[in-house]
Write a protein that binds this DNA or RNA. Structure first.
Length: 581
DNA sequence: GCCGTTTTCGGCCCGACTGTTTTCAGTCG
Protein backbone atom coordinates (compact mmCIF):
# COMPACT_ATOMS: atom_id res chain seq x y z
CA UNK A 1 0.00 0.00 0.00
CA UNK A 2 3.02 2.31 0.16
CA UNK A 3 2.58 3.27 -3.50
CA UNK A 4 -1.00 4.25 -2.89
CA UNK A 5 -0.03 6.73 -0.20
CA UNK A 6 1.56 8.84 -2.92
CA UNK A 7 -1.94 9.42 -4.29
CA UNK A 8 -3.06 10.74 -0.91
CA UNK A 9 0.10 12.87 -0.73
CA UNK A 10 -0.61 14.34 -4.15
CA UNK A 11 -4.18 15.16 -3.14
CA UNK A 12 -2.89 16.91 -0.03
CA UNK A 13 -0.16 18.76 -1.92
CA UNK A 14 -2.43 20.09 -4.65
CA UNK A 15 -5.14 21.09 -2.19
CA UNK A 16 -2.57 22.98 -0.15
CA UNK A 17 -1.15 24.58 -3.27
CA UNK A 18 -4.65 25.66 -4.31
CA UNK A 19 -5.34 27.15 -0.88
CA UNK A 20 -2.04 29.00 -0.76
CA UNK A 21 -2.47 30.40 -4.28
CA UNK A 22 -5.99 31.48 -3.40
CA UNK A 23 -4.79 33.27 -0.28
CA UNK A 24 -1.87 34.76 -2.19
CA UNK A 25 -4.38 36.42 -4.51
CA UNK A 26 -3.63 34.24 -7.53
CA UNK A 27 -6.43 33.79 -10.09
CA UNK A 28 -9.27 31.84 -8.51
CA UNK A 29 -9.49 29.80 -11.69
CA UNK A 30 -5.89 28.74 -11.49
CA UNK A 31 -6.25 27.83 -7.82
CA UNK A 32 -9.49 26.04 -8.66
CA UNK A 33 -7.71 24.03 -11.33
CA UNK A 34 -5.37 22.55 -8.69
CA UNK A 35 -8.34 21.78 -6.46
CA UNK A 36 -10.13 20.06 -9.34
CA UNK A 37 -7.02 18.01 -10.08
CA UNK A 38 -6.77 16.98 -6.41
CA UNK A 39 -10.37 15.82 -6.63
CA UNK A 40 -9.64 13.82 -9.76
CA UNK A 41 -6.57 12.19 -8.23
CA UNK A 42 -8.51 11.33 -5.07
CA UNK A 43 -10.97 9.31 -7.10
CA UNK A 44 -8.61 6.95 -8.87
CA UNK A 45 -7.63 3.69 -7.25
CA UNK A 46 -4.56 3.06 -9.40
CA UNK A 47 -1.29 4.33 -7.90
CA UNK A 48 -0.06 7.50 -9.62
CA UNK A 49 3.28 5.86 -10.33
CA UNK A 50 1.51 3.16 -12.35
CA UNK A 51 -0.63 5.74 -14.13
CA UNK A 52 2.50 7.64 -15.11
CA UNK A 53 4.20 4.48 -16.37
CA UNK A 54 1.42 3.88 -18.85
CA UNK A 55 1.34 7.57 -19.80
CA UNK A 56 -2.14 8.15 -18.45
CA UNK A 57 -1.70 11.11 -16.09
CA UNK A 58 -3.53 13.56 -18.34
CA UNK A 59 -6.51 11.23 -18.54
CA UNK A 60 -7.22 12.08 -14.89
CA UNK A 61 -10.02 14.66 -14.83
CA UNK A 62 -8.54 18.11 -14.16
CA UNK A 63 -4.94 17.10 -14.92
CA UNK A 64 -3.30 18.79 -17.90
CA UNK A 65 0.35 19.08 -18.98
CA UNK A 66 1.41 21.41 -16.18
CA UNK A 67 -0.10 19.43 -13.33
CA UNK A 68 1.09 16.16 -14.86
CA UNK A 69 4.62 17.57 -14.71
CA UNK A 70 4.12 18.51 -11.06
CA UNK A 71 2.87 15.01 -10.26
CA UNK A 72 6.15 13.82 -11.76
CA UNK A 73 8.10 16.13 -9.45
CA UNK A 74 6.19 14.78 -6.48
CA UNK A 75 6.82 11.16 -7.43
CA UNK A 76 10.51 11.69 -8.15
CA UNK A 77 11.49 14.17 -5.46
CA UNK A 78 8.75 13.96 -2.90
CA UNK A 79 7.87 17.61 -3.28
CA UNK A 80 6.66 20.22 -5.75
CA UNK A 81 8.98 23.16 -6.29
CA UNK A 82 6.12 25.61 -6.76
CA UNK A 83 4.61 24.51 -3.46
CA UNK A 84 7.92 25.20 -1.72
CA UNK A 85 8.08 28.65 -3.28
CA UNK A 86 4.50 29.61 -2.52
CA UNK A 87 4.95 28.23 0.98
CA UNK A 88 7.76 30.72 1.57
CA UNK A 89 5.41 33.58 0.70
CA UNK A 90 2.36 32.40 2.62
CA UNK A 91 2.90 30.30 5.76
CA UNK A 92 1.16 26.95 5.22
CA UNK A 93 -0.60 27.36 8.57
CA UNK A 94 -2.64 30.17 7.03
CA UNK A 95 -4.20 27.63 4.69
CA UNK A 96 -5.47 25.83 7.78
CA UNK A 97 -7.72 28.83 8.45
CA UNK A 98 -9.81 27.89 5.40
CA UNK A 99 -11.18 24.92 7.33
CA UNK A 100 -13.03 27.37 9.56
CA UNK A 101 -16.56 28.14 8.32
CA UNK A 102 -16.87 31.71 7.02
CA UNK A 103 -13.16 32.06 6.47
CA UNK A 104 -12.27 31.97 2.81
CA UNK A 105 -9.11 33.08 1.01
CA UNK A 106 -9.81 36.83 1.33
CA UNK A 107 -10.38 36.79 5.07
CA UNK A 108 -7.51 34.37 5.65
CA UNK A 109 -5.21 36.79 3.84
CA UNK A 110 -6.57 39.76 5.76
CA UNK A 111 -6.19 38.00 9.12
CA UNK A 112 -2.66 36.99 8.29
CA UNK A 113 -1.47 40.30 6.87
CA UNK A 114 -3.23 42.63 9.30
CA UNK A 115 -3.18 40.56 12.48
CA UNK A 116 -0.35 38.12 11.93
CA UNK A 117 -2.72 35.15 12.22
CA UNK A 118 -0.73 32.23 10.80
CA UNK A 119 -2.79 29.28 12.03
CA UNK A 120 -5.70 28.11 14.14
CA UNK A 121 -3.95 28.74 17.47
CA UNK A 122 -3.13 32.29 16.44
CA UNK A 123 -6.75 32.70 15.35
CA UNK A 124 -7.95 31.77 18.83
CA UNK A 125 -5.59 34.28 20.37
CA UNK A 126 -6.67 36.99 17.94
CA UNK A 127 -10.35 36.31 18.65
CA UNK A 128 -9.65 36.51 22.37
CA UNK A 129 -7.86 39.82 21.94
CA UNK A 130 -10.71 41.31 19.89
CA UNK A 131 -8.56 41.77 16.79
CA UNK A 132 -10.86 39.74 14.55
CA UNK A 133 -13.67 41.98 15.74
CA UNK A 134 -11.72 45.06 14.66
CA UNK A 135 -10.84 43.64 11.27
CA UNK A 136 -14.08 41.99 10.21
CA UNK A 137 -16.73 43.39 12.51
CA UNK A 138 -18.48 41.85 15.53
CA UNK A 139 -20.93 39.77 13.48
CA UNK A 140 -18.21 37.98 11.52
CA UNK A 141 -16.07 37.53 14.62
CA UNK A 142 -18.99 35.83 16.34
CA UNK A 143 -19.64 33.52 13.37
CA UNK A 144 -15.99 32.62 13.11
CA UNK A 145 -15.78 31.91 16.81
CA UNK A 146 -18.76 29.57 16.55
CA UNK A 147 -17.34 27.92 13.46
CA UNK A 148 -14.07 27.34 15.24
CA UNK A 149 -15.97 25.60 18.03
CA UNK A 150 -17.48 23.02 15.67
CA UNK A 151 -14.18 22.37 13.97
CA UNK A 152 -12.55 19.10 14.90
CA UNK A 153 -8.92 19.46 14.15
CA UNK A 154 -7.11 16.88 12.08
CA UNK A 155 -9.78 14.24 11.69
CA UNK A 156 -12.25 14.86 8.93
CA UNK A 157 -15.65 15.11 10.51
CA UNK A 158 -17.60 12.51 8.56
CA UNK A 159 -20.08 9.84 9.60
CA UNK A 160 -20.63 6.37 8.16
CA UNK A 161 -23.32 6.43 5.49
CA UNK A 162 -25.69 4.20 7.46
CA UNK A 163 -25.54 6.44 10.53
CA UNK A 164 -25.94 9.64 8.50
CA UNK A 165 -28.80 8.24 6.44
CA UNK A 166 -30.62 7.09 9.57
CA UNK A 167 -30.22 10.59 11.04
CA UNK A 168 -31.54 12.16 7.84
CA UNK A 169 -34.55 9.84 7.72
CA UNK A 170 -35.41 10.57 11.37
CA UNK A 171 -35.04 14.29 10.72
CA UNK A 172 -37.34 13.97 7.71
CA UNK A 173 -39.96 12.11 9.79
CA UNK A 174 -39.96 14.88 12.37
CA UNK A 175 -40.08 17.56 9.70
CA UNK A 176 -43.12 15.92 8.11
CA UNK A 177 -44.87 15.96 11.49
CA UNK A 178 -43.98 19.60 12.06
CA UNK A 179 -44.76 20.79 8.53
CA UNK A 180 -47.67 18.91 6.95
CA UNK A 181 -47.50 21.12 3.85
CA UNK A 182 -44.58 19.14 2.44
CA UNK A 183 -45.38 17.21 -0.73
CA UNK A 184 -41.94 15.59 -1.07
CA UNK A 185 -38.83 15.34 1.03
CA UNK A 186 -35.77 13.17 0.41
CA UNK A 187 -32.17 12.84 1.54
CA UNK A 188 -29.95 14.09 -1.29
CA UNK A 189 -26.27 14.99 -1.49
CA UNK A 190 -23.67 12.36 -0.67
CA UNK A 191 -26.30 10.24 1.12
CA UNK A 192 -28.22 9.78 -2.11
CA UNK A 193 -24.95 9.17 -3.93
CA UNK A 194 -24.10 6.44 -1.36
CA UNK A 195 -20.70 7.76 -0.38
CA UNK A 196 -19.45 5.56 2.43
CA UNK A 197 -18.77 8.55 4.66
CA UNK A 198 -20.92 11.65 4.81
CA UNK A 199 -19.91 15.16 5.89
CA UNK A 200 -23.34 16.76 6.22
CA UNK A 201 -27.03 15.96 5.76
CA UNK A 202 -28.50 17.46 2.60
CA UNK A 203 -32.27 17.34 2.44
CA UNK A 204 -34.42 18.45 -0.49
CA UNK A 205 -38.12 19.19 -0.10
CA UNK A 206 -41.06 20.41 -2.16
CA UNK A 207 -43.81 22.57 -0.73
CA UNK A 208 -46.03 25.43 -1.85
CA UNK A 209 -45.16 27.12 1.45
CA UNK A 210 -41.35 26.91 1.55
CA UNK A 211 -40.95 29.56 4.21
CA UNK A 212 -43.08 27.64 6.69
CA UNK A 213 -41.13 24.47 6.04
CA UNK A 214 -37.87 26.31 6.67
CA UNK A 215 -39.23 27.67 9.94
CA UNK A 216 -40.38 24.20 11.00
CA UNK A 217 -36.97 22.76 10.16
CA UNK A 218 -35.12 25.46 12.09
CA UNK A 219 -37.34 24.75 15.12
CA UNK A 220 -36.83 20.98 15.20
CA UNK A 221 -35.71 19.55 18.52
CA UNK A 222 -32.57 18.09 16.96
CA UNK A 223 -31.37 21.51 15.77
CA UNK A 224 -29.06 23.22 18.21
CA UNK A 225 -28.07 26.19 16.05
CA UNK A 226 -29.29 27.87 12.88
CA UNK A 227 -26.34 29.04 10.84
CA UNK A 228 -28.25 30.54 7.97
CA UNK A 229 -31.89 30.88 7.07
CA UNK A 230 -33.72 32.27 4.04
CA UNK A 231 -37.08 31.82 2.38
CA UNK A 232 -36.14 28.45 0.87
CA UNK A 233 -32.86 27.48 2.41
CA UNK A 234 -31.66 26.65 5.90
CA UNK A 235 -28.35 25.48 7.27
CA UNK A 236 -28.23 24.14 10.81
CA UNK A 237 -25.96 22.42 13.25
CA UNK A 238 -27.62 19.51 15.04
CA UNK A 239 -27.29 18.77 18.74
CA UNK A 240 -24.62 16.18 17.97
CA UNK A 241 -22.54 18.83 16.13
CA UNK A 242 -23.34 17.49 12.67
CA UNK A 243 -24.47 19.99 9.97
CA UNK A 244 -27.86 19.55 8.29
CA UNK A 245 -29.02 21.58 5.27
CA UNK A 246 -32.52 21.96 3.88
CA UNK A 247 -33.60 23.28 0.46
CA UNK A 248 -37.30 23.85 -0.20
CA UNK A 249 -39.02 25.00 -3.39
CA UNK A 250 -42.53 24.62 -4.79
CA UNK A 251 -43.38 21.27 -6.36
CA UNK A 252 -42.92 22.42 -9.98
CA UNK A 253 -39.19 22.88 -9.35
CA UNK A 254 -38.75 19.54 -7.57
CA UNK A 255 -36.78 17.63 -10.20
CA UNK A 256 -34.33 20.50 -10.74
CA UNK A 257 -33.92 21.05 -7.02
CA UNK A 258 -33.43 17.35 -6.28
CA UNK A 259 -30.88 17.13 -9.09
CA UNK A 260 -29.05 20.22 -7.84
CA UNK A 261 -28.90 19.13 -4.20
CA UNK A 262 -27.78 15.63 -5.17
CA UNK A 263 -24.66 16.73 -7.03
CA UNK A 264 -21.95 15.93 -7.08
CA UNK A 265 -20.58 19.39 -7.66
CA UNK A 266 -18.53 18.56 -10.73
CA UNK A 267 -21.31 16.55 -12.32
CA UNK A 268 -23.62 19.50 -11.75
CA UNK A 269 -21.12 21.92 -13.26
CA UNK A 270 -20.75 19.82 -16.41
CA UNK A 271 -24.50 20.01 -17.04
CA UNK A 272 -24.50 23.75 -16.38
CA UNK A 273 -21.67 24.06 -18.90
CA UNK A 274 -23.82 22.27 -21.42
CA UNK A 275 -26.64 24.71 -20.70
CA UNK A 276 -24.30 27.63 -21.36
CA UNK A 277 -23.20 26.26 -24.73
CA UNK A 278 -26.88 26.08 -25.59
CA UNK A 279 -27.30 29.76 -24.76
CA UNK A 280 -29.09 29.36 -21.45
CA UNK A 281 -28.38 28.44 -17.87
CA UNK A 282 -29.32 25.60 -15.58
CA UNK A 283 -30.20 26.10 -11.94
CA UNK A 284 -32.38 24.60 -9.23
CA UNK A 285 -35.49 26.04 -10.88
CA UNK A 286 -34.95 24.65 -14.35
CA UNK A 287 -33.41 25.75 -17.63
CA UNK A 288 -33.63 29.45 -18.45
CA UNK A 289 -33.11 30.97 -21.88
CA UNK A 290 -33.71 34.71 -22.03
CA UNK A 291 -36.64 35.23 -19.71
CA UNK A 292 -38.24 31.85 -20.41
CA UNK A 293 -37.94 29.18 -17.73
CA UNK A 294 -38.39 25.55 -18.67
CA UNK A 295 -39.16 23.33 -15.69
CA UNK A 296 -38.74 19.55 -15.55
CA UNK A 297 -41.08 16.96 -14.09
CA UNK A 298 -38.37 14.35 -13.48
CA UNK A 299 -34.61 14.00 -13.52
CA UNK A 300 -34.98 11.77 -16.57
CA UNK A 301 -36.41 14.81 -18.39
CA UNK A 302 -33.41 16.94 -17.39
CA UNK A 303 -31.00 14.45 -18.90
CA UNK A 304 -33.21 13.93 -21.96
CA UNK A 305 -33.22 17.68 -22.50
CA UNK A 306 -29.45 17.49 -22.94
CA UNK A 307 -29.74 14.41 -25.14
CA UNK A 308 -28.42 12.03 -22.50
CA UNK A 309 -29.38 8.85 -20.71
CA UNK A 310 -30.42 9.40 -17.11
CA UNK A 311 -27.47 8.76 -14.78
CA UNK A 312 -28.15 6.98 -11.47
CA UNK A 313 -27.23 9.22 -8.52
CA UNK A 314 -24.33 7.05 -7.23
CA UNK A 315 -22.65 7.32 -10.65
CA UNK A 316 -22.70 11.13 -10.73
CA UNK A 317 -19.15 12.37 -10.30
CA UNK A 318 -17.86 13.55 -13.68
CA UNK A 319 -15.41 10.71 -14.19
CA UNK A 320 -16.62 9.83 -17.67
CA UNK A 321 -20.27 8.98 -17.04
CA UNK A 322 -21.48 12.15 -18.78
CA UNK A 323 -19.68 11.47 -22.05
CA UNK A 324 -20.96 7.90 -22.08
CA UNK A 325 -24.51 9.05 -21.34
CA UNK A 326 -24.26 11.54 -24.23
CA UNK A 327 -23.28 8.73 -26.58
CA UNK A 328 -25.99 6.44 -25.21
CA UNK A 329 -23.29 4.10 -23.95
CA UNK A 330 -23.83 4.25 -20.20
CA UNK A 331 -23.29 0.72 -18.88
CA UNK A 332 -26.11 -0.99 -17.05
CA UNK A 333 -25.21 -1.25 -13.38
CA UNK A 334 -26.50 -3.49 -10.65
CA UNK A 335 -29.89 -2.55 -9.20
CA UNK A 336 -31.56 -3.79 -6.02
CA UNK A 337 -34.12 -5.70 -8.10
CA UNK A 338 -31.37 -7.68 -9.83
CA UNK A 339 -30.46 -9.47 -6.61
CA UNK A 340 -32.20 -12.80 -6.09
CA UNK A 341 -30.87 -13.47 -2.62
CA UNK A 342 -28.41 -12.62 0.11
CA UNK A 343 -25.27 -14.68 0.76
CA UNK A 344 -24.15 -13.42 4.15
CA UNK A 345 -26.34 -13.29 7.27
CA UNK A 346 -26.14 -14.28 10.94
CA UNK A 347 -28.62 -15.77 13.39
CA UNK A 348 -28.82 -16.33 17.14
CA UNK A 349 -26.71 -19.44 16.64
CA UNK A 350 -23.72 -17.07 16.74
CA UNK A 351 -23.91 -13.30 17.29
CA UNK A 352 -27.17 -12.51 15.48
CA UNK A 353 -30.38 -11.58 17.26
CA UNK A 354 -32.98 -13.54 15.24
CA UNK A 355 -33.66 -17.21 14.59
CA UNK A 356 -33.06 -18.98 11.27
CA UNK A 357 -36.80 -18.97 10.65
CA UNK A 358 -37.22 -15.29 11.43
CA UNK A 359 -34.37 -14.32 9.14
CA UNK A 360 -35.70 -16.58 6.38
CA UNK A 361 -39.21 -15.17 6.63
CA UNK A 362 -37.87 -11.62 6.47
CA UNK A 363 -35.70 -12.41 3.46
CA UNK A 364 -38.64 -14.06 1.73
CA UNK A 365 -40.73 -10.98 2.41
CA UNK A 366 -38.07 -8.85 0.77
CA UNK A 367 -38.65 -10.86 -2.38
CA UNK A 368 -35.51 -12.97 -2.14
CA UNK A 369 -35.45 -16.55 -3.42
CA UNK A 370 -32.77 -17.60 -0.98
CA UNK A 371 -30.77 -16.58 2.06
CA UNK A 372 -27.44 -18.02 3.08
CA UNK A 373 -27.08 -18.35 6.83
CA UNK A 374 -23.38 -17.83 7.48
CA UNK A 375 -22.84 -17.84 11.21
CA UNK A 376 -19.33 -17.47 12.55
CA UNK A 377 -17.07 -20.49 12.89
CA UNK A 378 -15.69 -21.58 16.25
CA UNK A 379 -12.47 -19.55 16.05
CA UNK A 380 -14.36 -16.32 16.61
CA UNK A 381 -15.12 -17.18 20.21
CA UNK A 382 -16.39 -13.70 21.04
CA UNK A 383 -19.18 -14.26 18.52
CA UNK A 384 -20.14 -17.70 19.89
CA UNK A 385 -18.75 -19.33 16.74
CA UNK A 386 -19.99 -22.77 15.68
CA UNK A 387 -17.99 -26.00 15.64
CA UNK A 388 -18.74 -29.05 13.46
CA UNK A 389 -21.21 -30.46 15.97
CA UNK A 390 -23.29 -27.28 16.29
CA UNK A 391 -23.20 -26.78 12.52
CA UNK A 392 -24.80 -30.22 12.12
CA UNK A 393 -27.50 -29.30 14.63
CA UNK A 394 -28.11 -26.01 12.86
CA UNK A 395 -28.41 -27.93 9.59
CA UNK A 396 -31.37 -29.85 11.01
CA UNK A 397 -33.09 -26.62 11.97
CA UNK A 398 -32.44 -25.23 8.47
CA UNK A 399 -33.95 -28.39 6.93
CA UNK A 400 -37.13 -27.85 8.96
CA UNK A 401 -37.39 -24.21 7.89
CA UNK A 402 -36.83 -25.19 4.27
CA UNK A 403 -39.60 -27.80 4.47
CA UNK A 404 -41.93 -25.09 5.74
CA UNK A 405 -40.98 -22.21 3.41
CA UNK A 406 -40.28 -23.97 0.08
CA UNK A 407 -39.72 -22.93 -2.63
CA UNK A 408 -37.82 -20.29 -0.64
CA UNK A 409 -34.47 -21.77 0.28
CA UNK A 410 -32.20 -21.26 3.25
CA UNK A 411 -28.67 -22.19 2.28
CA UNK A 412 -26.41 -23.39 5.04
CA UNK A 413 -23.12 -21.63 5.01
CA UNK A 414 -20.51 -20.45 7.46
CA UNK A 415 -18.44 -17.34 7.92
CA UNK A 416 -15.16 -19.12 8.30
CA UNK A 417 -12.25 -17.68 10.21
CA UNK A 418 -8.93 -17.52 8.42
CA UNK A 419 -6.55 -18.05 11.32
CA UNK A 420 -3.47 -15.97 12.00
CA UNK A 421 -1.28 -18.66 10.38
CA UNK A 422 -3.47 -18.77 7.25
CA UNK A 423 -5.12 -22.10 8.04
CA UNK A 424 -8.89 -22.46 8.01
CA UNK A 425 -10.97 -22.80 11.12
CA UNK A 426 -12.87 -25.98 10.17
CA UNK A 427 -11.76 -29.18 8.44
CA UNK A 428 -12.51 -29.77 4.75
CA UNK A 429 -14.95 -32.59 5.38
CA UNK A 430 -17.15 -30.20 7.40
CA UNK A 431 -16.93 -27.42 4.79
CA UNK A 432 -17.74 -29.91 2.04
CA UNK A 433 -21.17 -30.50 3.59
CA UNK A 434 -22.13 -26.82 3.42
CA UNK A 435 -23.85 -24.97 0.56
CA UNK A 436 -21.58 -21.94 0.87
CA UNK A 437 -18.32 -21.05 2.57
CA UNK A 438 -17.60 -17.38 3.18
CA UNK A 439 -14.06 -16.85 4.48
CA UNK A 440 -13.10 -13.86 6.63
CA UNK A 441 -9.98 -12.36 8.10
CA UNK A 442 -11.23 -10.83 11.36
CA UNK A 443 -8.28 -11.14 13.66
CA UNK A 444 -4.67 -10.06 13.50
CA UNK A 445 -5.41 -7.22 11.07
CA UNK A 446 -2.34 -5.46 12.41
CA UNK A 447 -0.05 -8.10 10.96
CA UNK A 448 2.35 -6.85 8.32
CA UNK A 449 1.05 -6.65 4.78
CA UNK A 450 2.91 -9.67 3.53
CA UNK A 451 1.51 -12.05 6.14
CA UNK A 452 -2.01 -10.62 5.89
CA UNK A 453 -2.00 -10.93 2.13
CA UNK A 454 -0.68 -14.48 2.34
CA UNK A 455 -3.55 -15.41 4.69
CA UNK A 456 -6.18 -13.98 2.38
CA UNK A 457 -4.54 -15.59 -0.66
CA UNK A 458 -4.52 -19.02 0.96
CA UNK A 459 -8.24 -18.66 1.67
CA UNK A 460 -8.93 -17.54 -1.90
CA UNK A 461 -7.04 -20.54 -3.30
CA UNK A 462 -8.81 -23.09 -1.10
CA UNK A 463 -11.13 -25.21 -3.24
CA UNK A 464 -13.97 -25.06 -0.71
CA UNK A 465 -13.95 -21.30 -0.15
CA UNK A 466 -16.60 -19.68 -2.35
CA UNK A 467 -16.52 -16.07 -1.16
CA UNK A 468 -14.00 -13.83 0.58
CA UNK A 469 -16.04 -11.56 2.88
CA UNK A 470 -15.27 -7.86 3.42
CA UNK A 471 -11.86 -8.34 1.80
CA UNK A 472 -9.94 -5.30 3.07
CA UNK A 473 -11.17 -5.23 6.66
CA UNK A 474 -11.78 -1.59 7.55
CA UNK A 475 -14.53 -0.28 9.78
CA UNK A 476 -15.90 3.00 8.43
CA UNK A 477 -14.92 5.86 10.70
CA UNK A 478 -13.04 3.42 12.91
CA UNK A 479 -9.96 1.30 12.40
CA UNK A 480 -8.42 1.40 8.98
CA UNK A 481 -8.25 -1.79 6.99
CA UNK A 482 -5.48 -4.33 7.03
CA UNK A 483 -2.43 -3.60 4.95
CA UNK A 484 -3.44 -6.06 2.21
CA UNK A 485 -1.92 -6.06 -1.23
CA UNK A 486 -5.34 -5.66 -2.79
CA UNK A 487 -4.12 -6.05 -6.36
CA UNK A 488 -2.74 -9.47 -5.50
CA UNK A 489 -6.12 -10.41 -4.00
CA UNK A 490 -7.98 -9.30 -7.13
CA UNK A 491 -5.62 -11.19 -9.42
CA UNK A 492 -5.87 -14.42 -7.46
CA UNK A 493 -9.63 -14.14 -7.01
CA UNK A 494 -10.07 -13.62 -10.74
CA UNK A 495 -7.84 -16.59 -11.52
CA UNK A 496 -9.53 -18.97 -9.07
CA UNK A 497 -13.04 -17.57 -9.62
CA UNK A 498 -13.37 -16.97 -5.91
CA UNK A 499 -15.99 -14.31 -5.35
CA UNK A 500 -15.15 -11.07 -3.50
CA UNK A 501 -17.84 -9.52 -1.36
CA UNK A 502 -19.29 -6.05 -1.18
CA UNK A 503 -20.48 -6.08 2.42
CA UNK A 504 -23.40 -3.66 2.79
CA UNK A 505 -23.20 -3.33 6.56
CA UNK A 506 -22.90 0.47 6.84
CA UNK A 507 -20.06 0.19 9.31
CA UNK A 508 -18.10 -1.89 6.79
CA UNK A 509 -18.97 -0.96 3.19
CA UNK A 510 -16.15 -3.27 2.10
CA UNK A 511 -15.19 -3.63 -0.69
CA UNK A 512 -15.57 0.09 -1.01
CA UNK A 513 -16.30 1.74 -4.35
CA UNK A 514 -12.77 2.25 -5.61
CA UNK A 515 -11.78 -1.29 -4.64
CA UNK A 516 -14.86 -2.81 -6.28
CA UNK A 517 -14.06 -0.89 -9.46
CA UNK A 518 -10.51 -2.20 -9.49
CA UNK A 519 -11.71 -5.74 -8.75
CA UNK A 520 -14.10 -5.61 -11.69
CA UNK A 521 -11.30 -4.30 -13.91
CA UNK A 522 -9.14 -7.24 -12.75
CA UNK A 523 -11.83 -9.68 -13.86
CA UNK A 524 -13.33 -10.65 -10.50
CA UNK A 525 -16.88 -11.67 -9.69
CA UNK A 526 -18.54 -10.08 -6.68
CA UNK A 527 -21.34 -10.79 -4.26
CA UNK A 528 -23.43 -8.04 -2.69
CA UNK A 529 -24.61 -8.93 0.81
CA UNK A 530 -26.15 -7.49 3.95
CA UNK A 531 -24.00 -9.24 6.60
CA UNK A 532 -27.20 -8.84 8.65
CA UNK A 533 -27.15 -9.67 12.35
CA UNK A 534 -30.86 -8.90 12.73
CA UNK A 535 -34.05 -8.98 10.68
CA UNK A 536 -33.99 -5.24 10.03
CA UNK A 537 -30.36 -5.28 8.94
CA UNK A 538 -31.22 -7.41 5.90
CA UNK A 539 -32.10 -4.03 4.38
CA UNK A 540 -28.42 -3.09 4.50
CA UNK A 541 -28.00 -4.93 1.22
CA UNK A 542 -29.17 -1.61 -0.24
CA UNK A 543 -25.89 0.00 0.82
CA UNK A 544 -24.00 -2.74 -0.98
CA UNK A 545 -25.98 -1.98 -4.12
CA UNK A 546 -25.07 1.70 -3.71
CA UNK A 547 -21.37 0.85 -3.55
CA UNK A 548 -21.77 -1.39 -6.60
CA UNK A 549 -23.38 1.46 -8.51
CA UNK A 550 -20.62 3.87 -7.54
CA UNK A 551 -18.17 1.29 -8.87
CA UNK A 552 -20.17 0.72 -12.07
CA UNK A 553 -20.53 -2.98 -11.31
CA UNK A 554 -22.46 -4.69 -14.13
CA UNK A 555 -25.13 -7.13 -12.93
CA UNK A 556 -23.65 -10.04 -14.83
CA UNK A 557 -20.54 -9.91 -12.63
CA UNK A 558 -22.55 -10.41 -9.43
CA UNK A 559 -23.05 -13.94 -8.13
CA UNK A 560 -26.33 -13.42 -6.31
CA UNK A 561 -28.25 -12.14 -9.31
CA UNK A 562 -28.46 -15.84 -10.17
CA UNK A 563 -31.69 -17.63 -9.38
CA UNK A 564 -31.36 -20.48 -6.89
CA UNK A 565 -30.70 -23.30 -9.36
CA UNK A 566 -28.19 -21.25 -11.30
CA UNK A 567 -26.42 -20.24 -8.11
CA UNK A 568 -26.08 -23.81 -6.85
CA UNK A 569 -24.83 -25.01 -10.24
CA UNK A 570 -22.32 -22.19 -10.39
CA UNK A 571 -21.00 -22.89 -6.88
CA UNK A 572 -20.56 -26.56 -7.69
CA UNK A 573 -18.77 -25.87 -10.99
CA UNK A 574 -16.37 -23.46 -9.40
CA UNK A 575 -15.58 -25.80 -6.51
CA UNK A 576 -14.85 -28.72 -8.79
CA UNK A 577 -12.70 -26.59 -11.07
CA UNK A 578 -10.73 -25.23 -8.11
CA UNK A 579 -10.45 -28.73 -6.64
CA UNK A 580 -8.92 -30.15 -9.78
CA UNK A 581 -6.73 -27.12 -10.50
C1' DG B 1 -4.31 25.75 -15.18
C1' DC B 2 -7.77 23.30 -17.86
C1' DC B 3 -10.51 22.56 -21.84
C1' DG B 4 -13.50 22.35 -26.53
C1' DT B 5 -20.89 18.97 -30.78
C1' DT B 6 -19.89 27.00 -31.79
C1' DT B 7 -13.68 27.53 -29.18
C1' DT B 8 -6.42 25.65 -29.38
C1' DC B 9 -8.06 31.27 -27.01
C1' DG B 10 -10.87 33.05 -23.79
C1' DG B 11 -13.75 31.59 -21.24
C1' DC B 12 -14.34 29.27 -16.49
C1' DC B 13 -21.82 27.24 -12.52
C1' DC B 14 -25.33 29.48 -10.16
C1' DG B 15 -27.92 31.25 -6.64
C1' DA B 16 -28.63 32.08 -1.62
C1' DC B 17 -27.39 34.11 2.55
C1' DT B 18 -24.82 37.28 5.80
C1' DG B 19 -23.15 41.46 7.49
C1' DT B 20 -23.07 47.17 8.28
C1' DT B 21 -21.78 47.08 2.10
C1' DT B 22 -26.49 51.96 1.18
C1' DT B 23 -25.43 48.43 -3.92
C1' DC B 24 -21.97 44.61 -2.58
C1' DA B 25 -18.03 41.31 -1.33
C1' DG B 26 -17.23 37.09 0.68
C1' DT B 27 -18.48 32.49 1.51
C1' DC B 28 -20.87 28.34 0.75
C1' DG B 29 -22.95 24.17 -1.34
Amino acid sequence: MTERSSNAEAVRAFRLLADLLDIGGESAYRAGAYRRAAEGIGRISEPLEAVRRRGGLQEIPGVGPSIARKIGELLDMGTIQQLEEVGREVPPGVAGLLAVPDIGPKRARLLWEEAGVDGLDALRVALEAGRVDELLGPGEARRINQGLGTLHEGEENRLPLGVARRMALDLIDHLREAAPLISRVEPAGSIRRFREAVGDLDIAAASEEPREVVEAFASLEEVSRVELKGPNRCRTILGNGFPADLWVLPERYWASLFFHVTGDKYHDIRLRDMAITRGGRLNEYGYTEGDRLKTFATEVEIYEFFGMQCIPAPMRSDVGEIDLALRGGLPRVLGLDDLKGDLHAHTDWSDGTASVRQMALAAKERGHEYLAITDHSRGLGVANGLDAERLREQGQEIDRVNAELAPFRVLQGVELEVRADGSLDLPDEVLDELDLVVASVHTGLRQDGERLTARALSAIRHSLVDVLAHPTGPIVGGRSGGDFDVDALYAEAAKTETVLEIDGDPSRMDLRDEHARAAIAAGCSLSVDSDAHSVGALGNILYGVGVAQRAWVPPERVLNILPLEGLLARLEETRSRKGSG
